[in-house]
Design a protein around this nucleic acid. Structure first.
Lengths: 238, 238
DNA sequence: AACACGATTTGAACACGTTCAATATCGAGC
DNA sequence: GCTCGATATTGAACGTGTTCAAATCGTGTT
């Protein structure tokens, strides 16, 4: 059973630390070429041999920098994450209201993801495998996840919203989960320019705004308590 | 771009209709062997050659019945679905309360899935790819999905719950989506005997019960309207 | 200049998923 | 019993992801 013994493929997976400037250039050349070919030909029709040939390096060299075809996706994923962080700076610096901040962050996410849509399905598919380093709960993507959750914490912290005290520690993680849900929808979104995803994000952010406000209503106290207890349990289990 | 032109791999994908009893036996032999090997060796370490050898047929013969390694997973998925439908008959015939019915159906789901856990990750991973026939929104799995949603409709219809009129048409689909979410958790669940998943299902079903009751409270009318409008839009987009 | 040594690069080799033309098997109709 | 067509089965071949021992490069040291 390859559950108890994690497959070699996903073990450790330390990429060699690129040590020289030349190496760094080669690495980036391969990554850019891969990105272009994925875009032009799609994931399946792009081969490691094709990437190597197009980049003008040998097959083995590509594997020196990326220990698998999937790890190229992981690198691209990390890159898109950087882009998103950068794209958020504007709204986070200027907007004050919780809703506007969250709207801005979500729109930035969809904007920065746009160019990856044609092969994002693969990203999500490999990410869904519990043993994949791309899976959001894995060790390998922990750094990105932490940064991402911190981003949502910043959305909350920098806003004027009056968040109930008990909700504060949970909210960033919840928003992160929510944003993963939106991405899941986006991956499957076939509407022109992914308009449906933008609309869904806009509407759900409004909804979240209402929910956060409602959380203070006394009538909902028992429900809120249930949800809180549940979150605690999930956290304990994971 | 392999998005506009669906990959050959996932196109049509008509399995040859098995015409003779002998053919049917061979098909089942291969499927059983595959299931056993996936369980014993895991997904990656099980090869099509290994399955064919263990089943005593040729490699090509295995491909005659299952056009890809993934389609074996699809067949196993369909099988587990059958098991779940059967396992639900009891509760659905005897229980009256909405909560108890939903609890029973969810518990049956986790029970019937249990034996597939060691390689369920792959199932979910391939299912997450928008172009995979395993993906719940795809044409290939439409039959299973429809049956599954009908099951949740039956959960509602056979219960004494007083569901608000406007919620009735949406509820089965919502419950189906919810149950997919639980499965997603289950796939990643590493607790002994997947106890965390059982607990999560139990707690969330209670929560859903409360939510359904709350949906009648006048104060929540605007929120409920928003959610409804949103659901309508999502449906229109998909 | 020669050397050492790690970083980088190469290409051949392997195992696997998949395809396919060719062959074998079987049952129905004569 | 024989033939024919559909069904079932075979195994060789292809392209792909991945591994690895060997070759090469670059740089600091003697």
């Amino acid at each position: 059973m390859d559950e108890s013994a994690p497959s070699l493929r996903y073990a450790a997976a330390k990429q060699p630390q690129v040590a020289t400037a030349k190496g760094e250039r080669t690495r980036e050349l391969i990554l850019e070429t891969a990105l272009r070919l994925f875009y032009e030909r799609g994931w399946r029709k792009t081969t490691m041999r094709g990437i190597a040939a197009e980049a003008g390096v040998s097959l083995g060299n590509a594997y020196y920098y990326f220990h698998s075809k999937e790890s190229l996706i992981q690198a691209i994923y990390a890159q898109s994450h950087e882009e998103h962080m950068a794209a958020c700076q504007g709204v986070l610096a200027t907007e004050i209201s919780f809703g506007a901040r969250l709207q801005g962050v979500m729109k930035a996410k969809l904007d920065t993801l746009a160019r990856y849509h044609s092969f994002a399905g693969v990203l999500f598919a490999t990410a869904a495998d519990p043993r994949s380093p791309l899976n959001p709960w894995s060790e390998a993507s922990a750094a990105v996840r932490r940064q991402s959750i911190a981003l949502f914490a910043e959305v909350v912290a920098g806003s004027d919203a009056r968040i109930p005290k008990w909700l504060r520690p949970e909210l960033p993680g919840l928003l992160w989960t929510y944003h993963m849900g939106i991405i899941l929808f986006w991956v499957h979104d076939r509407s022109p320019d992914r308009r449906a995803s933008y609309q869904l994000a806009r509407r759900t952010v409004e909804l979240i705004n209402q929910l956060v406000a409602l959380a203070r209503v006394p009538l909902l106290r028992p429900l809120v308590q249930s949800v809180l207890a549940l979150l605690g349990e999930i956290r304990a289990a994971a």
